[in-house]
Simulated scan of single mutants.
Amino acid sequence: MWHKPQLLTAIADLLVLVASAALLAAGAVWLVRVPSLPVRQVQFVEPLAHTRRGEIEQVLPSALRGNFFSLDLEAVRVALEQLPWVRKVQVRRVWPATLEIAVEEHRPQARWGEGRAELVNSHGEVFAALMPDAEMARLPLLDGPAGTSREVMERFAQFSSLFARVSQRPVELVLSPRLAWQLRLENGMRIEIGRENARSAVDARLSRFIEVYPQTVGNLPVRPAVVDLRYPNGFAMKVVGEGKGK
């Protein structure tokens, strides 16, 4: 073996690699355990609109265990995502002693149900949170069976676009347990759209109503309290307690 320099060189290289790996492993253990590398700063990427500092201070300290290398980023993420207004969190280390946190807050689009303290965000997801009464009052009211929040929000946007053609603004949309739609406008008028046996049927009813709205409802001296679109070839209106067919 001593007369084979190539073999000796290979053995030497192998020993160097083993020694280097051992040093790296020892260094990694030291970095994880050494107490002199603490996280000194927690930095949020963007200002938070709804989440308060006090809420963060309640959940974050218990998750900040360990030093810069041993800190459990997943624990930090989970702790912050428990807060009412927080939808999603991303956490990363920034050398030498900073924890950078990017928080995506819920963006409320509507209230969900009456008196539930629940809201619908821009993704059509229901979440529980509180807002000032004045801000809550400006949001439309949506409701429906469990799991339908995204569909109700999408339909509300579609119906709002339709009624914008006649300068009316929907403020409430309810999908009943029997899957019937009921819409209320800002002027107080309630519109019974009916069940959605086929999506095209609901679209056809509303489009027909919007088309004749200026010449019918728009010309009445008294605004109808209720308009019922659940007719195959027309609609009915209820004015001051009386029914009137159209």
Rank of each mutant, 00 (worst) to 15 (best):
F235R: 00
P96L: 10
A79P: 00
G54W: 06
A22L: 13
R169A: 08
W30S: 14
T216I: 10
V39E: 04
Q158T: 13
L175R: 14
G27Y: 08
F209T: 07
Q215L: 13
R199P: 07
I191M: 14
V222L: 06
L162I: 05
S161I: 11
I191C: 11
P145I: 07
E46H: 12
L64P: 03
E151N: 12
R111I: 05
R92L: 04
L229R: 05
E172T: 11
Q158N: 10
W85C: 04
F159D: 08
F163T: 11
V32P: 00
S36C: 01
Q109V: 09
S70A: 10
Y231Q: 04
K246R: 12
D143M: 08
V18M: 15
A236Q: 07
S122A: 14
T9W: 15
S62D: 00
A26S: 10
S200P: 03
L17D: 13
A198T: 10
W85P: 00
R150G: 06
V29C: 02
S62A: 10
V78D: 03
W181D: 10
A117P: 07
P47S: 02
S207F: 09
L71A: 05
Q58C: 00
V76P: 06
V39W: 09
L220K: 11
E192V: 14
V86T: 00
I193P: 03
L119G: 07
V226E: 01
G115E: 14
T216A: 09
A49H: 03
R195I: 03
V217W: 15
V212H: 04
A97L: 00
W181T: 09
S36Q: 04
E151F: 14
W181E: 13
D13T: 13
H3A: 04
R169C: 06
P38C: 12
